[in-house]
């Protein structure tokens, strides 16, 4: 861990000013990603700005919008009655992530910015374009069992590791960002950037911008939602494959569907074409399988992760079946 300056921010505005003053500043909320990567010498902030005590932890409902403060702890959100009722997939995703201890520390805003678990990113000895732009990618021909098959590039195949963002992605969450010109709200989809030739750039956040909240709309579609996670261990592990979905039935057919994937994409992967394929179709195996195939169209596999295509398709079918209540 390199030397750094530690400062406590008195307000979100002060936090942003402190961040802008120094090249390589980092916000500290739960610390669960940042401290880990600082120990790995992957993160080398010159200034760490402690925002953990800013008043941004509330969960509030105004009309049909539920606003989750960026500093709300994962565990508090997961068990919040409004979240459990209106957005079961979000609660399930949070509870499937990490461990009880980490969920008590990790915050919603920090969780969205969780960094990849690619082994070649997480140790400085390897070549990694995300960590050292232009240095190459040791994962392409390395041990890539956990890596992405969607949204990859020749520069990077690191998968986005989180659970929460996948569920939020499916439920069309919006992210509230405080910046120099005030507050802006962006679709969660628009927070993340595909690696392309610049995997070092992961989000659309500008320097000194701070995520202050996540907003979700309470509606019938989101109440019938589900998060399914597949991993080697039964718990305390990142996803090999995960699926978040939501379905609104209209008499016999699917009126609306939402589908997002985790573990397979370089970013939380919204499968819009698969959603379209489901819309208007009767809920059943045929529609689910068609959606599953559509969702994985264009997947590019490497030596050790080809299984993810089949596994993700099966997980999609299972998750849709579960959320539609159509049985086995």
């Amino acid at each position: 861990m390199r030397a750094f300056e530690y400062v406590v921010a008195a307000s979100s505005a002060a936090a942003r000013t402190l961040a802008r003053e120094v090249d390589g500043a980092r916000f500290y909320a739960g610390g669960t990603t940042l401290v880990d990567l600082m120990k790995a010498d992957v993160e080398r902030p010159r200034r760490v700005i402690d925002i953990s005590r800013l008043p941004l932890a509330a969960i509030e409902q105004r009309g049909d919008v539920v606003r989750i403060g960026a500093l709300a702890r994962n565990s508090d959100v997961a068990y919040d009655a409004r979240i459990v009722l209106h957005f079961p997939a979000v609660s399930e995703a949070l509870l499937s992530g990490a461990s009880g201890q980490i969920r008590n520390a990790a915050t919603i805003g920090g969780n969205l910015l969780q960094r990849t678990r690619c082994s070649y990113f997480r140790e400085t000895r390897w070549r990694c374009n995300k960590r050292e732009p232009g240095s190459g990618c040791d994962a392409l021909d390395g041990f890539n069992r956990g890596h992405a098959v969607l949204g990859t590039s020749d520069s990077c195949i690191a998968s986005y590791p989180g659970d929460l963002a996948v569920a939020l992605c499916a439920l069309s969450a919006r992210v509230v960002v405080e910046g120099n010109d005030g507050e802006r709200t962006i679709a969660l989809d628009d927070l993340y950037v595909l690696p392309g030739e610049h995997p070092e750039r992961e989000t659309t956040l500008g320097p000194g911008e701070l995520i202050t909240a996540v907003e979700l709309r309470a509606e019938r579609l989101h109440e019938r939602s589900h998060y399914l996670k597949i991993r080697d261990r039964a718990s305390f592990e990142f996803a090999l494959v995960s699926v978040a979905c939501a379905v609104e039935l209209d008499g016999k057919n699917i009126a609306q569907a939402r589908l997002a994937l985790g573990g397979v994409g370089t970013v939380p992967w919204r499968a819009r074409e698969a959603e379209a394929a489901l819309t208007g179709a009767p809920p059943g195996e045929a529609a689910f399988r068609r959606a599953a195939e559509t969702a994985l169209t264009g997947a590019r596999t490497r030596a050790h992760n080809a299984y993810k295509v089949e596994l993700a398709q099966r997980a999609i079918v299972r998750a849709l079946r579960s959320v539609c209540g159509t049985g086995a």
């Binding site: 390199r2 030397a3 300056e5 010498d41 993160e43 080398r44 010159r46």
Partner: peptide, 13 residues
């Protein structure tokens, strides 16, 4: 973020 060498912060007392 890239980890290219940037001068470390002076050690804080």
């Amino acid at each position: 973020m890239p980890t290219t060498e940037r001068p470390a912060a002076p050690a804080q007392p």
